[in-house]
Design a protein around this nucleic acid. Structure first.
Length: 697
DNA sequence: AAAACGACTTAGAAAGCAAGGG
DNA sequence: CCCTTGCTTTCTAAGTCGTTTT
């Protein structure tokens, strides 16, 4: 056993010697200031807390697979076959095609509306098609995403309009007229002058380099130093423009609105398989300066204008193809129904492909979303087994297995992202689980009275800082010590692991399982568990909603969804103060009203006439109303306070099975509008329609 | 087997807008 | 009625993960 271990260690040293390049030596880690509260408050959520505490909720939900579903077994089998998006083995078997992954109501609807075939496009346009329930129809099982697709193509960015001649640009104090190509790029910079980006070295360097590419030979020789460029007149001009826009007459504003609506109706929808569906982003991204997040090496580079000849159009052969603008041609028109995009182009900063796709309310996005949650529910059934296994694997004699097991433990317990490797120098230096480096964790055999504490401190997606101190099990701790032996701070912590190895392993544990499923699963199960725990029947509506938001917040904390507190942080604090004063006033009003009520009651007793009875009634009502208002304000204030730098939206939109929320609303007779706004209701229409109050994730 | 590519989901910031309080 | 101010919508960057190419 020990020899093996040694062998592993050797491999470690030799095999990966050149893997440990000096890659991250001089990276600057600039954390956002607002994250410091996390350190200060040492925030934990249910999954970051010690195992002992954690195991309680688990018991409620992590049933062993057998107990859990003995009754429903056969049906689950069907479900399984439904949710193999890629490897559909059942090809033409109509019987298996029932698209209901939901156990409760598979049978009734399956033959109702067959997906109509690819010809009735005209008709689809006519009928406004009030609320198509795609979730009651069959799904494709052959890997195709649609049979018919017609759209009008993208809307291009408006062409550049040269500045009026009175708006001048100065170089080294002297007026200089730029030719339009160079002037346009200059305006991009001018528009960002107030932003701190423009003071960053890399941004300025990248911008200037790309700007010079747009200059004439003459301009190039003259303009050699960005510091000598004076964009203030341009900047002021644009500010004035936006002021003018704000101050426009109602009429003019309406006109613009109408024009936007016209554009939306024309370009904002497509016809996919007989249904008119909303497109998410039908406008091509306008040119401008690239704004990466965090310490991005390419910030400030010129994002070039996209022209028709950059565009690949995807639609069905028998559709009316979109026309390129007069005098131009598309790069290509293709008819690929194995993909969901309508338009694509290659972007020049990273060389990646950008797409125009459908709105989240569309069938094609909704089905996928639904399926995502079904996969997570599958994980629920086998998560106990998987957890047992990775704990076993902590003892493996193979280094790669141990690393895999510890990484998986982090992904499960802390909801970390998988952490693909990234090309160095192309993007900001951020990491996820598999790409953690030695410098990102600290080990404390003992810390604040807890044993085996791991301190995480790294920049994750979007350069959002992840900071957490977590007690772990002894075996994990010992393993981490082993992984860190003889390594430099910028070496990979899991040097024998990457996301593709991990996901291959997960695939073997459960069909469709990947690292991100754990995030979805843990987020949703946490919501369900927290809702159960926090909601009490006696509470009134605002209090229940506060409970919902708190449950939501637990998830957001788990997933580390942060937001920058508004720039006017101080001001918002003042506002809160104001709100509190407001509440106080309400409180006074309330006691006044109560006193009045009492006196009028007494009055009524003496007089016993209709009039005084009425007064009692109205005063009673007044008290109730004020009480309600007070409650509402208090709740609002607490909610906001607790929410200061936590963003609930992302988890609500991407991680929480909407059926949990819908079921909760039904159970407590809370209008779903209190939880989901219009957009969200559109996206989750399937869940709102199908989830009953007894839905269990 | 590793690098590159392609398609798709997830993400926070900024822009736009409406509603409620002074 | 105006003006914040907070919510919604838009925007597009930045991930994940499977497939294809080298």
């Amino acid at each position: 056993k020990y020899r093996d271990k040694e062998k592993e260690k050797m491999k470690h040293k030799d095999g990966s010697a050149d893997k440990y390049k000096d890659k991250h030596k001089e990276k600057k880690v600039t954390y956002r200031a607002h994250n410091s509260w996390r350190i200060a408050h040492n925030v934990f959520c249910c999954f970051c807390s010690p195992p002992a505490v954690k195991s309680e909720p688990e018991d409620n939900f992590y049933h062993s697979p057998k107990n859990e579903k003995s009754l429903k077994r056969e049906r689950d089998d069907d479900i399984d076959s439904d949710f193999k998006p890629k490897k559909v083995k059942i090809e033409n078997d109509k019987k298996v095609k029932k698209r209901k992954p939901e156990e409760e109501d598979i049978k009734p609807k399956k033959t109702k509306n067959k997906r109509a075939v690819a010809d009735g496009k005209k008709k689809a346009k006519k009928e406004p098609e009030e609320k198509w329930k795609w979730w009651e129809e069959e799904r494709y099982t052959d890997g195709s995403k649609w049979k018919f697709l017609e759209h009008k193509g993208p809307v291009f960015a408006p062409p550049y309009e040269p500045l009026p001649s009175q708006v001048k640009f100065f170089y080294d104090g002297k007026h200089m007229k730029l030719r339009p190509e160079a002037e346009e790029v200059a305006t991009f910079f001018a528009k960002m002058l107030d932003h701190e980006y423009t003071s960053k070295d890399i941004f300025r360097k990248n911008f200037f380099k790309d700007w010079r590419k747009e200059m004439s030979a003459e301009e190039k020789t003259k303009l050699t130093d960005l510091k000598k460029c004076d964009f203030t007149e341009m900047s002021d001009y644009f500010k004035a423009q936006s002021e003018a826009r704000k101050a426009m007459s109602k009429d003019a504003k309406l006109k613009i609105k109408e024009e936007n609506e016209r554009l939306l109706q024309l370009y904002g929808f497509c016809i996919m398989d007989n249904h008119r569906e909303r497109i998410a982003n039908f406008r091509i991204e306008p040119p401008g300066l690239f704004r990466g997040r965090g310490d991005h090496p390419k910030m400030g580079m010129l994002k070039r204008r996209i022209r028709p000849k950059d565009i690949i159009v995807n639609c069905s052969k028998d559709s009316k193809h979109p026309e390129p603008p007069p005098g131009t041609k598309w790069k290509e028109v293709r008819h690929d129904n194995k993909v969901t995009w309508l338009v694509s182009w290659t972007e020049n900063i990273q060389g990646s492909i950008k797409y125009i796709m459908l709105n989240p309310s569309s069938r094609i996005k909704g089905e996928k979303d639904w399926q995502k949650y079904e996969t997570a529910r599958q994980l629920k059934k086998c998560v106990d087994r998987i957890r047992t296994q990775y704990r076993e694997d902590w003892k493996s004699k193979e280094m790669r297995i141990r690393q895999r097991a510890v990484a998986l433990y982090f992904i499960d317990k802390l909801a970390l992202r998988a952490g693909n490797e990234k090309e160095e120098g192309e993007t900001a230096d951020t990491v996820g689980c598999c790409s953690l480096r030695v410098e990102h964790i600290k080990l404390y055999p003992e810390n604040d009275g807890q044993e085996f504490v791991v301190e995480f401190d790294f920049l994750g997606k979007d350069s959002i800082r992840y900071y957490n101190k977590v007690p772990v099990e002894k075996r994990v701790f010992k393993n981490l010590q082993l992984f860190m032996e003889n390594k430099d701070t910028d070496d990979d912590l899991f040097d024998r692991l990457n996301t593709s190895v991990l996901n291959k392993h997960l695939q073997e544990l459960m069909d469709g399982l990947t690292a991100k499923v754990f995030r979805t699963y843990n987020a949703s199960i946490t919501l369900q568990q927290q809702l159960k725990q926090l909601t009490s029947a006696e509470e009134n509506l605002p209090a229940k909603i506060l409970s919902y938001n708190r449950a939501n917040r637990a998830v957001a904390i788990l997933c580390n969804h942060q937001r920058a507190p508004p720039k006017t942080f101080e001001k918002s604090m003042q506002n809160l103060q104001l709100r509190l004063t407001c509440i106080d006033t309400k409180r006074d009003q309330l006691s006044d009203a109560k006193r009045e009520l009492k006196s009028s009651k007494a009055d009524a007793k003496v007089r016993r006439d209709e009039k005084s009875k009425k007064t009692v009634e109205t005063r009673k009502k007044a008290v109730e109303r004020t009480e309600e208002q007070l409650m509402k304000l208090e709740v609002q204030a607490t909610d906001r306070e607790e929410n200061k730098q936590i963003a609930l939206g992302t988890s609500k939109l991407n991680y929480l099975d909407p059926r949990i929320s819908v079921a909760w609303c039904k159970k407590w007779s809370i209008p779903v509008e209190k939880i989901y706004n219009k957009t969200q209701r559109e996206k989750f229409a399937w869940a709102i329609d199908m989830a009953e109050d007894d839905f269990e994730f």
